[in-house]
């Protein structure tokens, strides 16, 4: 999910300050994708430029103590893991900054996002895939050893994610985030198994 679409989805619920957007984004994604306030501010400015978001006129501003403000003020999540670099005030939301809301076009963009599958697009450069691909054709490299070393490390990660999942309570958001990590890591193990079998079949099990 891009930050842009995340911000639009949150603004579809209610108008908010950039500060609150950051806090709520982290709360809603299990704290797995921390943002700094600069990223949020830049994203919202671009959404305003594109006509998807607008500033709430001063006379329509939500009163202090609204649901959003309360959420931010009571949440420990406001203390971002990446937060040391953003210079944002701690513990309470700044009251003298702009509030933003969706325009009609912005609401349509959110509806369209929910209705459209995520396109995988061009795969990013994956160090492991590149490493294995190069190892297969590099003389004197023990590919099976490389695969086994990686499999052990990936299994270790999978075990740790599974332990975290076992410790989690009834927080559905956090459970879904962990499930994603578990399934992604499992896929890597399965891919390594497959690579090993394919190399063995090709007679290149060196």
């Amino acid at each position: 999910m891009t930050i842009r679409q995340g911000m639009l989805a949150l603004l579809a619920e209610e108008p908010a300050h950039c500060y609150h957007l950051r806090v709520r984004f982290e709360e809603r994604t299990g704290g797995t994708w921390p943002l700094n306030i600069g990223q949020v501010y830049t994203t919202v400015q671009r959404l305003v430029r594109d006509g998807l978001v607008e500033t709430v006129p001063v006379e329509e501003l939500a009163p202090v103590g609204s649901a959003t403000a309360r959420s931010a003020e009571t949440s420990g999540s406001a203390e971002s893991k990446s937060g040391a670099d953003d210079g944002a005030p701690r513990g309470s939301a700044p009251q003298d900054v702009e509030q933003f809301r969706l325009t009609t076009a912005g609401r349509a963009a959110v509806d369209s996002w929910w209705a459209t599958p995520v396109v995988r697009g061009t795969p990013g450069r994956d160090e492991l895939a590149i490493k294995v691909a190069l190892a297969v054709t590099s003389p004197g490299v023990d590919v099976r050893a490389i695969i086994q070393t990686q499999r052990t490390e990936t299994m270790r990660a999978l075990r740790d994610y599974t332990r975290l999942a076992g410790e989690q309570g009834s927080d559905l958001t956090w459970a879904l985030v962990l499930d994603n990590l578990v399934f992604t890591t499992e896929a890597e193990v399965r891919w390594l198994d497959h690579v090993e079998a394919r190399i063995a079949r090709a007679g290149g099990g060196r």
Partner: peptide
């Protein structure tokens, strides 16, 4: 092995 995982893994834990 049964040693704990990398610290970086535990960083995903929510506050």
């Amino acid at each position: 092995g049964d040693r704990p995982g990398a610290e970086s893994l535990l960083a995903v834990r929510p506050r």
